[in-house]
Amino acid sequence: MDLIDFIIICIKVVLVFAATMLAVMGMIYAERRISAFIQNRLGPNRVGPKGLFQPLADGLKFLMKEDIIPTAVNKPLYLLAPAMLLIPALMTFAVIPFGSSLTLFGRQISLQVANINIGVLYILALTSVGVYGIVLAGWSSNSKYPLLGGLRSSAQLISYELSMGLAIVAIVLMTGSLRLNDIVSSQQGHLFSWYVFKQPLAFLIFLIAVYAETNRLPFDLAEAEQELVGGYHTEYSSMKFAMFFMAEYANMITAAAFTVTLFFGGWDIPFVDEAAMGNWGALLSGIAFILKTAFFLFLYIWVRWTFPRFRYDQLMNLGWKVMLPLALLNIFITGGILTIIS
């Protein structure tokens, strides 16, 4: 690896980080506007054209607010918890390929930060680590509601992680690789080579599990406002609260991108050979990836205002008694069919 490669990697890291933060801001704006649209309201439309600068105003407000640390909290862990949630959330995107490869000055640049051979496991590892931020935030606040929220959230994360992992196993069985690039390239060609058509059950399980993993409605029991005030971040204010917020949105964006990569061909445009089109192909594939991801982000908001929240026992029953057996069944069926074919 020479200096130029190193510089390219640095540029990609900064680019992906900036894009994620920008997407977080866009997502906050979209969430508020689309929620308002669904509820027949106007939503924020005063700051900037069409209210586009609203996230900036929100961010500024978070920075200016007084940062209150309650006296009874466990200070080191209380301060550490938001970072423990935000860092894995921002790290996860590194392995997701967001386009085919560019060729600049005779150098091939793949549009992905890290092309590692265990990409799928990397994402699973980081999502499982994200639990710590939530648990510790709930516990260190030294207050009833955050603790309840933290416990709920972590129990939910652990339960749904299993189904999510098992749904992915079916995809890995079909691809024979844990590298996300291989998963994308095995879905190229025509539309029906996307895994959503080959693995509809796995897709359904994965999608539901992802909503539970990101603490979104109808699974947002960790911060059920009517029962728990605000959940694990009740005692947090100012920028620390904003960090929880950003982590949540960053997780949603990564989850949407991961769904696209696994089931919707990643950056693939059906019936189009991106590699033959050179740099324009790379650009188009990048745009296709962004559009697909944006659709899944929109789906988050749409689902939020469509389904009511689950009760806690319903959530656990669904996770352990319905999704887990179905995911196992799916693996057996996939394995059986693959054995017969080969």
Binding site: L121, L124, A125, L126, S128, V129, Y132, I158
Partner: peptide, 17 residues
């Protein structure tokens, strides 16, 4: 990655609980 998934992600979370 297994080190993180199994020990940090699963076992230690239960311990912490």
């Amino acid at each position: 990655v297994l080190e993180i998934i199994i020990y940090a992600g699963a076992i230690m979370v239960l311990f912490l609980f």
